[in-house]
């Protein structure tokens, strides 16, 4: 029986609230706001309180899915990426760069966010890029 409360930073937005991810024998069981964090002082929003919930959720996607004949089907990363790249190109050719938009995420790194906006602006040629943490 090993319980741990691991201090970390909320992945959901730019505020930087601190909380503990509680684990028992390596499995996540809960989130507790840090009382001693100067940022959130023992408080969290509804997203932060549930930050542990998705990680080991049985419905979490672990492989790419592609809709084939109306049904979501597991495919390889190669197939998923080839399909995505082909469709993005087709849409851009048919409707121009502004027919596309990109939504970045607080759950990925700064570097990945940088790369996504570079793909949007330099690669595709649109300023349609936004972020889930623009609260």
């Amino acid at each position: 029986m090993k319980y741990k409360a691991t201090l970390t930073t909320c992945p959901y937005c730019g505020c930087g609230c601190n909380f503990y991810l509680e684990t028992v024998d390596g499995r996540l069981i809960g989130t507790l706001p840090s009382k001693t964090s100067p940022v959130n002082q023992g408080r969290l929003c509804v997203k932060g309180w549930n930050a542990h919930a998705f990680v080991q959720h049985p419905k979490r996607l672990t492989k790419p899915l592609l809709r084939k004949n109306g049904e979501l089907t597991e495919v390889s990363w190669d197939e998923a990426l080839d399909f995505t790249a082909r469709r993005l190109k087709e849409i851009k050719e048919a409707g121009g760069p502004d027919a596309l938009a990109f939504l970045a995420s607080a759950k990925i790194t700064n570097e990945e966010n940088y790369l996504l906006q570079k793909l949007a602006r330099a690669g595709v040629g649109t300023n349609n890029i936004d972020h889930c943490a623009r609260l």
Binding site: M1, Y3, K4, A5, Y20, L32, S34, K35, T36
Partner: peptide, 19 residues
Amino acid sequence: TGFVGLRQRGQDISPYVFT
């Protein structure tokens, strides 16, 4: 089996189960 209490490491105080 374990003691459910609080542990301080540096400036950080959190729940902990001491075994």
